[in-house]
Amino acid sequence: MTHTVLVTGVARHIGARVASVLAADPEIDRVIGVDTVPPPSPAKHGGVPLGRTEFVRVDLRSPDIAEVIAAADIDTVVHVSLVSAPSRSAGSRARMKEHNVIGTMQLLAACQRSALVRRVVVRSTTAVYGSSPRDPAVFTEDAEPPEAPSHGYAKDATEVEGYVRGFARRRPDVTVSTLRFANFMGPGVDSPLTRYFAQPMVPTVLGFDPRLQFVHEDDGVEVLRRMALEDHPGTYNVAGDGVLLLSQCVRRAGLLTMPIPSPAFRMLGDLARGAGLVDFSPEQLRLMRFGRAVDTAALAAELGWRPKFTTAAAFDDFLRSRDLPNGLPAVVFDWASGALARR
């Protein structure tokens, strides 16, 4: 049977990589990539080559997306376009919310009208579980978060998931997969968290050492590819095996930390956000205190596959690609142990 796949969010890294890997698959006839802005060109801005992906510039918030779906006889929709933080390119928080929530509503409305769409894959995030001191240590997909996220990206994702559930109820003939990704990590990822680790000195919350979990971009793209090609209905957590403590991350990166008591941390976060230095949202501040880990057994069982990168390996790969100053303390210790062994 013929496959025509629509990928949203191709101007951003993960979306572009998904479109590129699907375009390289001979089983797929056409790949249509949409986004509000044109993707960066591979030559000039280091964008990902999209292969034979046909790019259509559509504002997801407008009903134009329905025309694209109808005109191209789309049968599979991979909705990757979820903006995680307000920025210069994505605009303010209000625009980000519109993009995430209204964009998804428009897309799902178009899918519901289409008689051809058979499969919808939606990118979500483990941020929907929130982050609180009353959380279980490890979230499974059916967990009820003790404190549901009340704003920002996490709230957008929660609302998006709500609309996706509604769509799945109204169109039981369509296979709907929702993927809750942990924080993406890897050479090409540009997120608030990767920017956080790119600072020479990182602020941490005094007296807290959260557990973090990462998914390597290669694994994330592979999961999205499998979901786009095969029927795997349901909601799945996607994360590398294991966890890293924030303290381990900064030590691996060889960074200096600046522990700040939590009330001051919140204030500084607001100030920095206001000044446009870093875009640390309140949920990310909560993550920096209480951390979060998810269970990925359901995905492993469904796909018969495990991520190639553990959380630690994903982070190390990110560090290698950024060439972060690592290893000075290690060299000192190796020298000392060597000296000791030579005695």
Binding site: A137, V138, R211, G242, V243, L244, L245, S247, Q248, C249, V250, R251, R252, A293, G327, P329, A330, F333
Partner: peptide
């Protein structure tokens, strides 16, 4: 160097 393991 942070090269130690913690469980989930």
């Amino acid at each position: 160097t942070g090269e130690y393991d913690v469980d989930e």
